[in-house]
Design a protein around this nucleic acid. Structure first.
Length: 279
DNA sequence: GCCCAGGTATAAA
DNA sequence: TTTATACATGGG
């Protein structure tokens, strides 16, 4: 995606390839908040960002070029032509038009592996507003102040905490899961950094040794935290996505499975043949 | 009060 | 191998 350096920061001519609301509110991430002017504020690592849409121009406010190239380019996956992929797919596979339209502008973020793992452990049997609340309290309690945000606490920051210490998060039964995940990651028993390239099945098995990590949390961690677009058994999950959301829904409503649909599209493009579940 | 939320562990069939 | 239930919490 083309970018230019301006007095406002980095500007992108994204067109339909980047919709901020769709991207931040589809359930793949939990720490980006809309402000009163329609921009979104968040923090990745120790880098805060405000990003907004000025009539189709996406502006990364006051971001130096070096930081853009080393962090945000990859975080927002700006080197992948999502819109082009969607157009190609719509042409090849008209029956997916409804699904394709519903995920217009969603980009798959490259979140930090530990943050993604921890976030999706918290997400189980939970709703998005409450997930965001628990994660916010987790960062305020155990992260460190960074501008107007808090960093996400590391696994070693959390590994020696007791369930009692996590009680103020009001995470319920998930508190023990968070602690177990922190212990296993901090000890090296679960090696997140190697999962960028390790065989997918090995990654799944390793993640699922953590208490409270099942199929869903493992897949979400791999897709959103390690950018493994080969994650998700798409033929299974797409059927669920199609049946729950893509028939006759309000086009303005984002599917909770939009991320799965997006991933399906990448899978489809790579393989060029429709999957059975798309019939 | 009741239902459910982007699930998982556990026990039972 | 598949199916039912509890699990903490809080918003609608």
């Amino acid at each position: 995606m083309e970018y230019r350096l301006t007095p406002r920061g980095i500007e992108l001519e994204a067109g339909a390839g980047f919709n901020l609301g769709s991207t931040f509110n589809c359930g793949q991430c939990f720490r980006w908040d809309e402000d009163e002017n329609g921009g979104y504020c968040g923090i990745v690592g120790e880098h805060e960002l405000r990003i907004f849409d000025d009539n189709g121009t996406i502006v990364l406010e006051n971001v130096p070029e070096q930081e853009f190239l080393s962090l945000w380019l990859k975080y927002f996956d700006l080197e992948t032509d999502y819109e082009g992929i969607r157009l190609t797919l719509a042409e090849r596979c008209p029956q997916l038009k409804c699904a394709i339209d519903s995920i217009n502008g969603i980009r798959i973020l490259s979140q930090e592996p530990w943050e993604a793992l921890c976030s999706f452990i918290i997400s189980q049997n939970n709703n998005i507003p409450r997930i965001k609340g628990i994660i916010d309290r987790l960062c305020r309690s155990f992260g460190k102040p960074c501008g107007s945000h808090y960093t996400f606490p590391s696994a070693s920051d959390l590994k020696d905490r007791s369930p009692e210490e996590l009680a103020p998060l009001r995470a319920g039964f998930r508190a023990g899961y968070i602690i177990d995940a922190a212990r296993r990651v901090a000890s090296g028993e679960v090696r997140l950094e190697e999962m960028f390239s390790a065989p997918l099945e090995q990654c799944r098995r390793e993640l699922m040794t953590i208490k409270g990590v099942g199929v869903k949390v493992a897949e979400c961690t791999l897709l959103y935290g390690l950018h493994r677009l080969d994650a998700f058994p798409v033929d299974v999950w797409m059927k669920k996505a199609l049946s729950s959301s893509f028939s006759g829904v309000d086009p303005g409503m984002l599917s909770p499975y939009a991320g799965v649909a997006q991933q399906y599209i990448f899978h489809y493009i790579r393989n060029t043949e429709p999957l059975a579940a798309a019939e």
